[in-house]
């Protein structure tokens, strides 16, 4: 794993997690610096999504630690961990992440609303982000009424609306064709660079991973660093 320094933001160490008899993670580790984009690659079933879920506090590892900005996630109260996920973390998944009953602008505003921001203020901020991702004209539409590429842009706007410190992206272009995938990656990377957010990008596509600063490969539940950025 890369050396820790003052810029270290998120660290997962010696993470183990089993689902039934099958170990998904077997001593995996990952360190992410502030503003750094790290791609987590590996074949299907290698444990890369489980690693992301552990780092994001969605799944508790059986053993090992995850620290964010020096705080051990396991030692936090549930309420504090939820607040951290809502405010400091943003999420983009492959699909099925937008609430179908809500309009696109309501979806983007959702993390702010859950954090207690008033509707008008939250939706104004949501529209600002939708404009940056060139989907502000879709504000009143439901997710089912927009294309896959547009839905992914809405999802990125939602992930970034709280200006999180880390964006966790799990196969964000997995359901898109090459052209739309390319656009989505550019917007995700540009937006993250602009706000200084770190990105943990799980992907099995090398072309997507090439947008990162460095890659980490997960194989059989263990991580192996490929290359550090110079």
């Amino acid at each position: 794993m890369a050396e820790r320094d003052d810029d270290t933001l998120l660290v997962g160490s010696e993470l183990r997690k089993s689902f039934g008899p099958t170990p998904a993670l077997d001593g995996a580790g990952l360190m992410v610096r502030r503003g750094e984009i790290v791609a987590v690659m590996g074949p299907s079933g290698s444990g890369k999504s489980t690693l992301l879920h552990c780092l994001a506090g969605i799944v508790a590892p059986d053993s090992g630690t995850v620290t964010f900005d020096g705080q051990d996630l396991a030692a936090m109260r549930d309420r504090d961990r939820s607040a951290l996920r809502r405010g400091a973390f943003g999420f983009v998944f492959q699909f099925g992440q937008l609430v179908p009953e809500l309009s696109c602008v309501e979806n983007v505003a959702l993390p702010m609303r859950l954090g207690g921001t008033r509707r008008k203020q939250a939706e104004a901020k949501a529209l600002e982000w939708m404009a940056r991702l060139e989907v502000d004209h879709l504000g009143g539409k439901r997710p089912g009424e927009v294309s896959g590429g547009q839905a992914q842009r809405v999802a990125i706007a939602r992930a970034l609306v709280t200006e999180p410190k880390v964006v966790f992206a799990d196969e964000p272009t997995g359901a898109l064709d090459s052209f739309n995938g390319e656009q989505v990656m550019r917007l995700l990377v540009d937006s993250a660079r602009e706000t200084g957010a770190s990105v943990v990008l799980v992907t099995h596509e090398a072309r997507v991973a090439a947008y990162s600063d460095r890659e980490v490969v997960v194989r059989d539940g263990r991580t192996r660093q490929v290359e550090l950025v110079s």
Partner: peptide
């Protein structure tokens, strides 16, 4: 080989951007 390929891909992606 993987490391060399990924490095080239990152350079090309950055040039493309």
């Amino acid at each position: 080989q993987r490391t060399a390929h990924l490095k080239s891909m990152r350079e090309l992606t950055s040039r493309k951007q």
